[in-house]
Design a protein around this nucleic acid. Sequence first.
DNA 1: CAAATTCCATACGGCACCGTATGTTGACTC
DNA 2: GAGTCAACATACGGTGCCGTATGGAATTTG
Lengths: 193, 193
Amino acid sequence: MQEQKTPLSATDWIQAAFRALAKGGPQAIRAEAIARDLKVSKGSFYWHFKDVPALKLQMLEHWQRKATEAIIQLVDNSVASSVGRLHLLVEVASTTDTSAYGGVNVEAAIRDWGRYDEHAFAAVETVDEKRLHYVTELFSNCGIPEPQSRSYSRLLYGSLIGLEALSGHTKADRKNDLLGLLDLLLGGNKVVN
Amino acid sequence: MQEQKTPLSATDWIQAAFRALAKGGPQAIRAEAIARDLKVSKGSFYWHFKDVPALKLQMLEHWQRKATEAIIQLVDNSVASSVGRLHLLVEVASTTDTSAYGGVNVEAAIRDWGRYDEHAFAAVETVDEKRLHYVTELFSNCGIPEPQSRSYSRLLYGSLIGLEALSGHTKADRKNDLLGLLDLLLGGNKVVN
DNA sequence: CAAATTCCATACGGCACCGTATGTTGACTC
DNA sequence: GAGTCAACATACGGTGCCGTATGGAATTTG
């Protein structure tokens, strides 16, 4: 527990802002509220950022980078086949998802944010497009032709998003449901690893 | 265009509140802002409602009723088989969804709302449970055993939600993707209505 | 050690909203 | 045609937030 008065960085503020976003939605991204959470005054905020919109833009940039880095990391680490990569992708995404930052559903909160803010919408659009492109390629490598591979990637990715939004639904449920869907998409044969 | 000064009802306020919700999120449900939209003063609001939380509760009650009525209506109107009902369900839900009220994504906005408000969460939970129960029964009637029918209903309903959240994705895409998923879930045989 | 710079606290005016209190207007009642 | 009541409008104090301005401590730098 570092109780010392180590000076805050802009990244500290951004992380705290993501916690606020996850907990209270986009309108919870307020300078004074986050300052209270960090136990400093808002004078600190206006030293690190020009204003609240500037903070929001930096949050989106930050997330957009992290969200695509995660994919690249998975690509490189999993040296398996495309089928194995799909399974690994589903397994990782369905259990942890991108709960970096504060700990909870930052991903979903940003997606919500995109419904009310054009900048957030653009960020979500970019990330979705990159992820879908990657998954589509994986399906293509599994022998699925062009029009279907894109449809399958939308179904898999869309299901991941939708199942997270469902309420009475454990992580184990989610993982099983998504793995079942993947097997169906890949031809119904049970693929081991 | 009824430009007369016909007095407002509580339902008028609720509908306007749903428009505000869909456009600006839960924090956009404000008495004075909605009053401006309705071109009245907030004195009117505090005559119809005790306070803002009371309006929100009435909104949730209102939606919860409408959201389950829609299912019952579909059940009764479609006299086809269970397979036909599933197809009809997907077709209707993927194109129009529950865009009653103001015209746009009230459904998605309430789901977002549920992430930050416990009452909204409870409403979404109840509606999800009822819909999932209904779809599970349809799958059961198609000969799919218990553990899978529930998983399939989650997949279908979750995909519907998730695909709506995807950005670069037309309504036609959505419908095709979901019908394709349904065919996969029903055994891969193309079922014609 | 004096000066500059970093990092933050405090104080201010302004705005948007909340909820209440009270005034106003039309319709309807007898 | 005085009284009642529904359906507002208006005015008020209070709060939380924004952005700015300015002051101060702590560290670094010449």
